[in-house]
């Protein structure tokens, strides 16, 4: 299954722009999505340190299955304010 993954903050400068397309297994977990994003980022995969996956409602734990629909985003450590 192909999914669009949104990238934010420092990940936007990782050479892939603001959106990444990755192929995921059925019932993929958040960890599997992050691993797929890491593979796509190649030499910039270290930028994923401290990042989490989220949908439009919540941050997802690593072992949580990602929802089959809706937005998915990789979020670096935050610094609003």
């Amino acid at each position: 299954m192909r999914r669009r993954i949104e990238l934010y903050g420092r990940l936007r400068d990782a050479g892939q722009g603001a959106v990444l397309s990755v192929i995921l297994p059925e019932n993929a977990t958040a960890r599997q999505v992050l691993d797929a994003v890491g593979s796509a980022l190649g030499p910039n995969a270290s930028l994923l340190h401290g990042c989490v996956l989220a949908d439009g409602e919540n941050v997802l734990s690593a072992r949580e299955q990602v929802p089959s629909k809706g937005r998915l985003a990789v979020l670096p450590p935050v610094c609003g304010g």
């Binding site: 903050g9 989490v52 989220a54 919540n58 979020l75 450590p77 935050v78």
Partner: peptide
């Protein structure tokens, strides 16, 4: 430069 921040966690 992007400023460093606080890692998010599942609540």
């Amino acid at each position: 430069r992007w400023l460093p921040g606080c890692a998010l966690h599942r609540k």
